[in-house]
Design a protein around this nucleic acid. Sequence first.
DNA 1: AGTATGTTTCGTTATATGTCGAATTAACGG
DNA 2: CCGTTAATTCGACATATAACGAAACATACT
Lengths: 121, 121
Amino acid sequence: MREFISITKALSDESRVRALLALRDRELCVCQIVELLGLSPSTVSKHMSILKHARLVEARKERRWMYYRLAEDDAPAAVHAAIAWVLDVLSTTRRIKQDVKTLKEVLKIDPEELCRVQSRR
Amino acid sequence: MREFISITKALSDESRVRALLALRDRELCVCQIVELLGLSPSTVSKHMSILKHARLVEARKERRWMYYRLAEDDAPAAVHAAIAWVLDVLSTTRRIKQDVKTLKEVLKIDPEELCRVQSRR
DNA sequence: AGTATGTTTCGTTATATGTCGAATTAACGG
DNA sequence: CCGTTAATTCGACATATAACGAAACATACT
């Protein structure tokens, strides 16, 4: 039950759901998610840690960057079912389709360049 | 997206999830759910209205009683998928199995008698 | 009409959550 | 080492949520 509630709580915020769906096709580093959502790095970091505690995403640190990706096969069955449900229900919504477009632009920018731009704001 | 978040928010509270699962096999009136959850009638009423707004449950008034039941076929696909997921993940948990037992006892009591007992507390 | 009963709404309170900016930590580059 | 940079943690604030009891509402019984 605890595990289930941690999943539904994680999925009960629009920004977190958008972040989760953004990881559909590839991993992303925090600054890329910051760019997509338009939130502060600290807020995004908090969101990602909530998704991670729910085991919906996994993380990997490489050099200075933290990469997040969707949960893989070692995650609980409840997590896989949740992800499948989210993808099924939301992939075709306006908001998520817009995010796909935005992401395409974000991915064109070199991550180092992206972080540098953000730190100047 | 709005619809989806209303579903996940509804499912992000343990009492609401327990109430939802209690409706698995039959409709229940508010006083029966009150008895199961051990919360005040006003709190249970609020919970049920949140489940109803998310379209996870439907309501029917008969005489003095308000009966709630699981959403039926006319509900959105996202709702059905959510209910299927919840049932699949939680039916076998300790808490829910205990609720099934408690419910069996509650159902033995005539609803009128149950309400009378509650109003004396 | 008047009273009892089942549920909901309202007002209040305590706790939880989302957000930011500042401070801190971790990793790299000179 | 020391400064730079990416991310996280901390502290603060505003808003949202879960809970209750009191009041209001709706229905039935006499």
